[in-house]
């Protein structure tokens, strides 16, 4: 079976002047087709940098990246559908216009882009905001638009960088179940960055835990819950056990004294 993504022995060091900072150290993992994989790690550990390597924004110092089993050239772009950490909507384009633009850059024909933007905005209940400018939308709605933009892009692999990181807890929970329901319909391959343990457990098939920078994959956790999933998971004892396990992996060694 071919993988949607292979990351093999990738290292990245940022050099600025005479100092250099190692951010990724020999990172290897893969995402199977139709699999939802989460990367969880402390902030500053190099998760976004990893995305920038996969997306061709930066060059890795070592290792190779294969997308759909083809090895990508350094700085080769446009092979993933991407949702950035901040909504990154162009302020002078309407909500529909932003979606259309992303689709056109991905090579979709203009008429088709327009149609699918309208159709999907209606489907997620945003048809009345299609012609609003982004600043008129709440943070949660902007993230929905940003997600829709990635969802409608034609590339098989979706890379989502902390999509709900800036939202309040309640909106965040709504967005998680919303994303879950959309994703469970057609099961794209997803690589998902988060720093929320519950979020990773709720959404993923597999969780990769990263260490602090320079980041390494320190643990791989299969998430056993059947789909479709819902909020009933919160009370599942296995859920809480896994949560504790990941939590202890993410807790720095020096603060681990008293409790075990």
């Amino acid at each position: 079976m071919t993988h949607a993504l292979d990351v093999v022995g990738v290292s990245k060091t940022f050099a600025s002047g005479r100092t250099s900072k190692a951010v990724l150290d020999d990172v290897s993992f893969h995402v199977k087709e139709g699999e939802f994989v989460s990367l969880i790690g402390p902030s500053g550990s190099g998760k976004s940098t990893l995305f920038h390597l996969i997306g061709g924004l930066e060059k890795a110092n070592a290792g190779e990246i294969r997308i759909g089993s083809r090895r990508i050239a350094p700085l080769e772009r446009g092979l993933i559908s991407y949702m950035p950490q901040h909504a990154s909507l162009l302020p002078w384009l309407s909500v529909a216009g932003n979606i259309e633009m992303a689709l056109e850059i991905a090579g979709i024909d203009r008429m088709e882009a327009r149609q699918s933007a309208r159709q999907w905005l209606a489907r997620i209940g945003l048809e009345r905001d299609a012609d609003s400018y982004p600043h008129a939308l709440s943070g949660g709605m902007q993230q929905r638009v940003s997600f829709l933009r990635a969802l409608l892009s034609p590339q098989p692999l979706m890379c989502l960088d902390e999509p709900f990181g800036s939202l309040d807890a309640l909106t965040r929970q709504h967005m998680q179940t919303w994303l879950l329901s959309l994703w469970e319909e057609d099961r794209r391959s997803v690589l998902f960055i988060t720093h929320s343990i519950e979020e990773a457990l709720l959404l993923s098939d597999r969780i990769l835990v990263l260490s602090t920078a320079p980041a390494k994959v320190i643990r791989e956790i299969m998430v056993p819950f059947p789909r479709p999933r819902g909020e009933q998971l919160w009370s599942d004892p296995v859920f809480n056990e896994l949560k504790r396990e990941i939590y202890s992996l993410l807790t720095p060694a020096e603060s681990k004294g008293g409790h075990s």
């Binding site: 061709g56 162009l90 850059i105």
Partner: peptide, 24 residues
Amino acid sequence: KLVNYMKMIGATKGQLFWRLELPG
């Protein structure tokens, strides 16, 4: 942030200019 986003989704130099830099 917007430049990074446009590059990540594969915008060419021309697209970056016409869609982001010029209107901005």
